[in-house]
Simulated scan of single mutants.
Amino acid sequence: MSNTFSDSDQIGLVATFSDLVNTDFKGETNALCWYRNLEGDFAAIVHQLQLKENCTEVFPEDLLALQLSEQGNRAREIILKDFQLLTDFGASPTLNVLKCYERDEEFDFIATDVYSFHVDRSPIATDTFLCTYHGAASDIIANSQAEQKVLIPEIREKLAAIHNGPAAEFEDFLKENYFDLHYQAQPHASPINVGVGHLWRLAVDHPTQQVLPCIHRAPLEKEGEYRLLLIC
């Protein structure tokens, strides 16, 4: 088991799906990890799937249509079981084959794409679940090691110039354009990679949340390698 995981106050480790969904976030812990060493040929699944665009959704029937080896079939069974566990729990999982996400290049001083450290927000009580089965995996970072970008003076000044409206409406402007969801890692920060095969539950910003939302980012993809990601 990774010492990075076990040494972090931010991460709670669990051994079952039931523990993953029923354990409360508390204190500094805003990420729960069902730590797993998965067996199976997930690369074979990725190689057989047809990438229709940079991010292609894959449905259970697409997986079932693949002709796979014994190891490939084992990987497929794991994905389908995870899909069913999350669905039965009431979540809406999505399986994606990813070449890359869209980049935000509108402003050169602040990015609002998923490659930027960010938190998720929801008007209702929910959490983010994710598992990378193949390819590069996401990073999370402790809230104490990152600063909200809209609070950085030079960025805030430039955003105020773009807003060009009443000061009383500035905070609403930041929220409406998702600027307030993004963070900048501090120089001493030590992001933690979530790894491959583990199923994660990350705290989301919503009105009843008892902890700070988990700051995370999508990884830069490896050249010539697609990601296989379950998320909801």
Score class of each variant (00 low, 15 high):
216 H>Q: 12
126 T>G: 07
1 M>R: 09
50 Q>I: 14
143 N>L: 10
201 R>A: 13
183 Y>P: 02
98 L>V: 15
34 W>L: 14
37 N>C: 05
106 E>Q: 13
217 R>W: 05
110 I>C: 08
109 F>S: 14
17 F>T: 05
99 K>M: 04
22 N>P: 07
35 Y>G: 03
105 E>H: 11
24 D>Y: 12
167 A>S: 15
77 E>P: 02
124 I>F: 10
230 L>E: 10
182 H>I: 03
89 F>S: 01
13 L>M: 07
68 L>I: 05
120 D>F: 03
129 F>N: 14
110 I>D: 04
180 D>F: 10
129 F>I: 11
23 T>P: 08
158 K>D: 08
5 F>H: 08
25 F>S: 06
168 A>H: 11
146 A>W: 12
171 E>A: 13
201 R>T: 07
160 A>G: 05
147 E>W: 05
151 L>N: 15
177 N>D: 13
123 P>K: 10
97 V>D: 01
100 C>Q: 15
197 G>V: 12
215 I>G: 08
30 N>L: 06
224 G>R: 06
195 G>C: 03
73 N>E: 14
208 T>V: 08
65 A>C: 03
205 D>L: 07
181 L>W: 14
166 P>M: 11
186 Q>H: 04
226 Y>W: 00
64 L>S: 13
109 F>H: 07
20 L>I: 06
125 A>F: 13
229 L>I: 15
4 T>D: 07
106 E>N: 12
183 Y>Q: 10
